[in-house]
Structure formats: C-alpha cells, structure tokens
Write a protein that binds this DNA or RNA. Structure first.
Lengths: 216, 216
DNA sequence: TATTGCATTTCTGGATCCAAAAACGCAGAA
DNA sequence: TTCTGCGTTTTTGGATCCAGAAATGCAATA
C-alpha cells in the first residue's frame, strides 16, 4: 500500500479498500474474501470486517443473498438514483459555499481543476474530478452535507473512466468546469448554482447513457 | 426487547440500539459501553461493535476524541444542516412517488397519518411522524434516496418530543400533513411537492428554533 | 483544602478461536 | 452428456482472548 495515515487498522483497511474500489483495481462484482484482504493489508480479519461494513453502508459494497459480499456493480437505475440526489444536493452546497470562499479555497479549487482536466491515468479521472467538485463545496460549512455528497461521488467515480474516451465530451466538461469556477470566483452565487445544476445534470445524463437500457 | 426479526445478531443489536436512541431511552450524550450493551442484548461484544459502527456512519452515535463513543447530541448548526438536506431530498422523493402511488400505498399513508396525528406517547411522536412521511415517499422507487432520507429523519426524530407540547403548533402540523396527503391522493404532483417543501421547511425551522442560538 | 502524581481499574481495538452455513466438487444416475 | 445428491472444503458471523490506552481514585504534598 502506498500510504497509511490512519491511527487504527480499521481506518487504514477502509481507506485502502475504498481506494481500490474507486479506481477500479477491485472490479464491480468482485467478491471480497476477508481472509485474503486481511493478508494483503497485513492485519487480522477484524478490521477488514469493519471496513467492509462501512463500505456497505456507503454502497460501494453489496451483500449477496447471504453472507458473501462483493464490490457493488451499479445498474442504470441506481446511476440515475445517484445522479438525481447529486442534482438535489450539490447546488445547495455550492450556494452555501460560494459566499464563504476565500482566496485560498479558490486557489485550491483551481489547482484541483487543473489536475482534473489534464490528461492522466483514466482510472483516477473520476477521483480527480470529484476532488475539484469537493474543493469548491468544502467551505459550505455543512459536514453532513459534504459527507453525503462525498459518498455519492465515491459511488460513480469508477465509472467515469469509460466516458472520457470521447474527446469532444471532455471539451464540454472542461468548459462547464471553467464556467463553474469562474462563477464561484466572481462570487456570483446564482450563476454558480446554475452552472452546478447544468454540469451535474449533464454528467449524470452521460453516465446513465453509458448503461444499456436493459442491463442489470 | 420487544421484537427481534433479524437473522443475525448484529442486525438485531443495530435495530435495538437505533430504537432506543430514536425514542430517547438512550439520551443524547450518554456514553455507550460495549460490554454493558452486549449483556443487555444477550450477545457478545462483536455484534454490538458492528451496530455501533453503523450508527456512527448514520450519525446517531459520535466518537469522542479517542475510543469512547456516545449518543450524538445535535447542535443547532447540525439541525439546520439536516433540515436543509431534507428540504433538498424530500420534494424530489415525493415528486417521484406521487405518480406511482397505488390505492394500497395511499391507504397505508393514511393509516400512518392517523397514527402520527393522534395523541400518543410523546417519545414516539417523531417516529410516527417519520413513518407517515416515508409511507408517502416509499413508492418513489429509489432505494438510495429513501435510505438517505430515512437516516436524516432518524437523526431528528428524538428531538420532536419537545416540540409537541405546543398545541397550536400541532394543529398547524396536522393541517400541513392533511394538505400533503390530499395533494398526493389527487395525483397533483406539483401541489404535493410544494406541500412537502412548505411542511419540511416549517418543521425544520421549528426544530432549529428550539435550539438556543449559542448552545453547543 | 486543593492539587498533582501514581497505582489500579476499566474499556476498547485487534487477534484468534469455534461452530455453522454456504460453496464446491465429485460420483453416480438418468 | 447432463443433472442430482452427498461429502468435503471454504468462509463467514459470533465469542473469546489479550495487550495497550484511557479514566478513575487514592494518597501525599503544598
């Protein structure tokens, strides 16, 4: 593992598994065996179990009929469910955050945007994209709201890799990102909220479109 | 314990603790000792730990600086946070649910409303109130949205008991409930969404008002 | 009497153990 | 060859064990 900045083994296991799922190292549908994961993370099964439980609560892991658990594979319906929730929550967060943005916040968001928009490992595109969004919303001062949005972003991050093959689509995303950042930077709350609505709506629609109508 | 309809001990412990917190048997701020809870629930510490973890994720339990955990005591800011999230999510759920409501759904909601509005144990008022709301939103067909809303309702349920002393306030709530149910029954999506917005907004404001400006 | 330091007790997180349930695989029957 | 049934293996949930951290309480001192 790259880094372990967690006080306890359970947090560490959680962070490691979450990262592996989000960047697709653990593919949707892969079954999770506690013993194996414990060996890989060099801890006992106890913290692995705790991590799996948390991931279940977040929706990144799903429980099969009985006992066994696997990496959640989202359906078209679930992607739409998540998209609509983002569309309800992110404009709220942006609306609260923009009036509180400091120069430091804006600089951080700007850096995050640069990182998100440049070419890079497709596996981490979703992650980098989410980091930009969260950087802008972070100053909203609503921990629970941010947690909820983070969970939603976590769920779809890994599916973005398939969408970024289309270059014209990427240009559009860059454009929407830029518009959002500009509105936030100029302190125009209404414009920022509207830009968020547009962008999240578009992004969700694109993700939904990736899933065939009849697929699981 | 009254009922134990859970297959495994962890679910059972979770349900039991959640119920005790929601109806105020475990007061905000009370520290949770695993050993004691395990003895009370007649299981070992393992499932209790799992239950506490889940409750932490939901926000009903908070972790102290180190190790010890207690029943979450919400602050004014957190109540507002939660209220705004409800205001973002519940209209969405109602808007999706109303076109799909069956006669059975409406009957269930109507019963739930009757139960919520009649005099009864103040400790369970929040719970009964939430059940009505959820009954109306249940057919929305969005499991994740419903989970999120349920979690939010869980968090504030126990604080409603203090609000229902005021009888004029109760009349207003009954009125708003009735308006919402009527709109839903008539299939008027826009009216139902608007009634939800009004009611949730009012309810959240009343809860926030209960907390002194400067309190924790 | 109030306060600081230390010994004791309590409690938690993590590891390990155990029984039961589920998955697997093989053999025999159709 | 394919399906079904049974014995074996694997894996999980729950219980218990253990070491370390925090809290508690007592005593000695100012």
């Amino acid at each position: 593992m790259v880094a372990a900045f967690a006080a306890n083994a359970a947090d560490e296991a959680y962070a490691a598994l979450r990262a592996q799922i989000i960047r697709g190292d653990l593919e949707p549908g892969a079954t999770l065996r506690q013993e194996l994961l414990a060996k890989q993370l060099e801890v006992s099964r106890t913290p692995v179990r705790e991590a799996i439980n948390r991931l279940q609560a977040e929706g990144l892991v799903e429980v099969l009929s009985s006992r066994r658990s696997r990496v959640a594979a989202l359906s078209r319906a679930e992607i739409r469910d998540i998209g609509d929730m983002r569309l309800a929550l992110e404009p709220l967060a942006i609306g609260l955050a923009v009036p509180r943005l400091t120069a430091t916040d804006l600089r951080a968001a700007s850096f995050a945007l640069q990182d998100a928009d440049e070419e890079g490992d497709p596996a981490t595109f979703g992650e980098r994209n989410s980091r930009f969004h969260l950087a802008l919303m972070d100053p909203c001062g609503r921990p629970r709201l941010l947690d909820a949005i983070t969970s939603l972003l976590d769920l779809t991050d890994r599916y973005h890799r398939f969408a970024i093959a289309d270059e014209s689509h990427n240009d559009l995303v860059r454009d929407e990102h830029r518009r959002l950042l500009d509105a936030a930077a100029s302190g125009n709350v209404e414009a920022a909220v509207e830009a968020t609505r547009t962008h999240v709506g578009d992004a969700a629609a694109r993700l939904v479109a990736m899933f065939p109508e009849t697929a699981p």
